[in-house]
């Protein structure tokens, strides 16, 4: 993150991000990945409101995780009233 002195913005003012802050991508922090069992999920939105990283979204296809930013804290798994979310070690995945 080194920039030349000429490129430093006046008074440190930077534009606000709109939907995500690409200056700090945190998905690589994760050691466990949340996996949703769509059969069990009732879309009660409790995981959505409990995510500190705004990384769960309610879409027409059900709840979706934003793995670009998910830090893998596991709060969603903990608060799910029907046990529809499980945490799988990251090393089990190819990507």
């Amino acid at each position: 993150m080194s920039i030349s002195p000429n490129e430093v913005p006046f008074a440190g003012t930077v534009p606000s991000p709109k939907t995500e802050n690409e200056g700090m991508i945190t998905g690589s922090w994760r050691t466990r990945r949340p996996i949703l069992d769509t059969d069990k999920c009732t879309e009660c939105l409790i995981c959505w409101i409990s995510c500190p990283d705004s990384s769960i979204k309610s879409t027409t296809a059900g709840m979706e995780f934003n793995l670009k930013y998910c830090k893998g804290c596991g709060i969603c798994n903990e608060v799910c009233p029907v046990g529809a979310i499980s945490l799988v070690p990251e090393l089990d995945f190819e990507d």
């Binding site: 991000p17 991508i25 500190p52 990283d53 705004s54």
Partner: peptide
């Protein structure tokens, strides 16, 4: 929005 350096599971961030 997502993309901040707070710890995983941060209460203040939530």
């Amino acid at each position: 929005v997502p993309g901040h350096r707070t710890c995983a599971g941060c209460g203040p961030a939530l």
